[in-house]
Design a protein around this nucleic acid. Structure first.
Lengths: 208, 208, 208, 208
DNA sequence: TATGAATGAGCTTTCATTCAT
DNA sequence: AATGAATGAAAGCTCATTCAT
């Protein structure tokens, strides 16, 4: 039984679904061949539809690429934003909190392998505005990470002289490297765990 | 006295120089506008030469872009490869060695800002083969880093249970993040030092 | 009491009215944007109707444009055709007759500014057949004008050696120029009068 | 033997000539099929050249059309501008002067039948800027004509109360009608003379 | 009868690459 | 060896028209 909202906007729902289908096909195409090598007719062809139809749902090629990127960023943002640091009573609890944040972000990329491919391989160098959008996303992750670190410093779980700004950016870099490695790994599950453990060890006690 | 190679290619010395000039111009162009937005005639125009001449020195557009990438990778590789871990007597000395490796790599990117721009912003998504080439370069850095780590573990300067493989990749990720940050920083000098210190601290003693 | 024709097409009365509505909307659109810049969906949009509906009332885009032109030409033709030269007793009366013809035609264009815009600005260069249709309309005006002139010559109100054919075409050209000028004028009323007076003077006594 | 200028700009002369060739082919195409029905490949095809070559010599389609129009307007302008009213001693001489102006303009259109076709049939409704350019050209003709008329009024060859502004526009309208008629005439030569005579008669003595 | 989603022919424009000079 | 005019494949995008609902 359709919800009221579904009934009210039956026609627009159809369109919304079609738009989603095209978006999905575009995501496949972009992940496989990148932005420039993907033709509008490729995307349309994957759905067996005429390429003119594409333009009923998206302004142009850049528009759909940005939409794809936005979709991915939104997923990551929603994870990160709902996961602000909360009160913790022990260092152990605090460490758990940080590790959970990292694992959640990992999870997003593991859930859909195309995300990483598009974000870290195909999205750069397409458009100036897109570049800064990606930068902004990484900055946002770093900012939330820094919140955790600052919180840890305040609570005394972390060193008082910690350069939280640089370290949050560094850890974001680690995150990206980890995602890339997991994307390429034969056993992503095991690889993920290995990264979690190694990074936790690094952060907590260093390498010495 | 000219070397054998120089004698054999006496006539091609000029050619070699011209090739280098074109390569330099291409590097500027690619760093400024990216692969797709750079036209062969742009590169030729920067040298005041006819764009037909370009094809006497390079196969095609992808060829020169790969050559540019190769040039950059070569520079980094030469730094990394000449810097294999050597005997160290103390942990302090060992730490110094690692930090020096990182600083040398940083140095390459700071010496020529175009390197980072091309490698981390413009080179991705151009060509499948190029993507793997970049991966390979990062892997190579990670491999050398791992050598250091294994050496440190052996000598007892680092934890015995250290996951050297993952950590070397993670540290490479930190390196990339650092280079990006320095590229965008107002005061690259200071930023570089800040990163060095923060990362050394992280690696040696963790954040706790 | 409905006429036979009205009875026969009782059901199509609504259709006829809708056709007229679409025609009116098309006239606005064509006058504003010209033939090529006007989209079928523009016309439909002005009526808040689906653009597929358009094709129930008109064959295609050219069809409706021709219909618009025909409508305008019909209006002009009806004025001109009902205004054949009649008996006049004096030169003054005769002059009045000619001037009235001109003013009536002017009136048609002043009553609906779109007529002139479409006919003299937008209709040309669309279609070969349309070009000749416009020629034909101008010829028709010229022909009626010539009838007046011939009548004037016969009655002795005009010179015996008058080249009525050429002069009728020339006066038609004046008419077109006048309409264009009035279309662009700030005070169409005054401009119309000024033209009437000047042209009457020219025709009656020349410029000398 | 090439002139100095030809020697100095040998390369640019070639280009100039090619440009002229393309312009000529475009003029044929536009005159035959109008702006919208003419494809760039049509123009290129007429010269047996690749359509990409076109873009080495012209910005785009509108650019070459404007160039064609400008060429025509320039011809007419050069006639009109070099023919300003000069001192005349008698009414007869003055009349001759006016008639000569008209005949010269006629001449331009008779010399190349495409001029009239493009200007009066194909150029309108293509582009707003082009429309005003054509208006401006007609205005310019009218302005020069008015100069003659004002001169005639001053010298006493024409009526003192003459509405020179309106009449100059009217005569320009006659001119256009005449050109159109001659373009369509079987014997353009004879038709031209007939128009000259009839218009001269109208202007000098009216129709009465 | 009305609709608007779907279609694809058809156009303009770009630019890497070739090759005659 | 150097040039740059010529080329045409290739792609994005528009919109008149069709037709299933």
């Amino acid at each position: 039984m359709p919800t009221i909202k579904e009934q009210a906007s039956a026609g627009s729902d159809r369109a919304e679904q079609k738009r989603a289908e095209i978006l999905a096909a575009a995501m496949d195409a972009f992940a496989e061949n990148g932005y420039h090598a993907t033709k509008i007719s490729d995307i349309a062809g994957r759905l067996g539809m005429g390429h003119g139809t594409f333009y009923r749902y998206f302004e142009n090629k850049l528009d759909i690429f940005v939409s794809v990127i936005d979709l991915i960023i939104e997923k990551i943002t929603s994870i990160v934003e709902t996961d602000y640091p909360t009160a913790t009573n022990s260092a152990a609890e605090y460490h758990q909190q940080i590790i959970r944040l990292g694992e959640r972000i990992f999870q997003v990329f593991r859930a859909d392998m195309r995300f990483g491919t598009i974000l870290f391989y195909e999205a750069l160098g397409v458009d100036q505005a897109l570049n800064s959008k990606l930068e902004t996303m990484l900055d946002m992750i770093a900012m939330v990470t820094e919140l955790y670190f600052k919180n840890g410093v305040e609570k005394g779980f972390l060193r008082q002289d910690l350069d939280t700004l640089v370290l949050s950016k560094a850890i974001t870099g680690v995150l990206v490297a980890g995602v890339r490695d997991v994307l390429a790994a034969k056993d992503p599950e095991a690889t993920t765990k290995r990264w979690s453990k190694a990074i936790a060890g690094l952060m907590i006690g260093g390498m010495g």
